[in-house]
Design a protein around this nucleic acid. Structure first.
Lengths: 201, 201
DNA sequence: ACCTGAACACCGTTCAAGT
DNA sequence: ACCTGAACACCGTTCAAGT
């Protein structure tokens, strides 16, 4: 959080900081309910703040989502490092990917933004997404080095597949199948799926 | 096409028919360029027709897309039947699925609408989507009966997976990987992937 | 330094009034 | 039977004017 003070080392004025914090809390509630493409106007209104104030703190929608999701995305990134030293390569890869899908599912509509952000260095979400992909790539490489994951995919492929299964979880008509379909996709990535949490057939 | 005369057996007045046809042609161009969530206002404007006229012919966005895609979707549905009698069960399933992904890719944003439509009997796209799913289900069942496809998925799972890989193809950042990732997902569905167009590793 | 109201250019949807 | 302009209630984005 405090993404602005990271860049410009000026502390926020008290009223600004209060608005910022409150805006973020309201945005979290509204976006949790209506998804990542919720109305920004609505957020400002519910926060009882001028619309231009929201724009001052978060110049783009991506900037707002970055502020909202930064902590969670960083946790997920860090989680990969932990799994790397605590679990078998294949198991680590699969359970981390599963958490990625769960994250996508928990913020409706965010997967489209992230897919766009990873290719757009201008997006406020870009670096978080790149870190996430790097974290996944390391897990993938470790599994590949042990011959536990197929060798013909890279970190971006993994990112895309997690996004795709996340997309399934984001569609009300398919959501309840997401866990099952995750297992199926995971079984395609692993060399020996049955040795893990994946029931192959 | 002519979705209205299917229901009410009244032929359209000449001016109406002309508007209808022209509107559809313009809509095809605009939606091809801007995706399924293109501005309806823009379509009416470019067709040089009152906005209410567009609504008269296509009361919802789904109705417009149904009129636009009906022929293509019907062809795809029919194609399944042809493959059923001309190809091996696994090969038929895979190449039909591949065409499904290609279709999704060719109309940006349509996959979200279809995922919603298949669960919503009120949607104008509903029956086309259901037919499509049925067609896929038959190919899947045939492959399963021969032991060529895993037994733990149904037609809706197949629909979701095709949609998910289609989603990948719809993201500019992932599009060029779609073909490769399709092969990977297909390999997860088939029992013996290497015997087909699928290079397994 | 920060906030705000208002303006601008868009949407989708509906409907009374026209021919 | 069909078409239309206009109205309504929304958007996102920007900016001059306030404190």
């Amino acid at each position: 959080m405090e993404h602005r003070s990271d860049l410009q080392e000026m502390p926020m004025r008290a009223d600004a900081r209060k608005n910022y914090e409150h805006l973020l809390a309201v945005a979290r509630a509204v976006i949790t309910e209506h998804g990542a493409d919720a109305s920004l106007r609505d957020i400002a209104r519910k926060a009882e703040v001028g619309l231009a104030t929201l724009y001052r703190h978060f110049p783009t929608r991506d900037a707002l989502l970055e502020a909202l999701l930064h902590a969670t995305l960083a946790e997920l990134t860090q989680k990969a490092g932990e799994l790397e030293s605590s679990s078998a390569p294949d198991e680590a890869l699969v359970s981390w990917s599963r958490e990625g899908v769960a994250f996508v599912k928990s913020f409706s509509g965010v997967v489209d933004l992230m897919a766009a952000a990873i290719a757009d260095p201008e997006s406020a979400l870009h670096t978080s997404c790149v870190s996430l992909r790097s974290a996944g790539t390391r897990l993938l490489l470790r599994a590949q080095a042990e011959g536990m994951a197929r060798a013909d995919i890279d970190g971006t492929d993994l990112f895309a597949l997690i996004g795709a299964v996340g997309w399934i979880g984001d569609q009300p008509s398919f959501a309840r199948r997401a866990a099952h379909l995750f297992d199926i996709v995971a079984s395609a990535i692993l060399t020996n799926p049955s040795s893990n949490g994946i029931r192959e057939r």
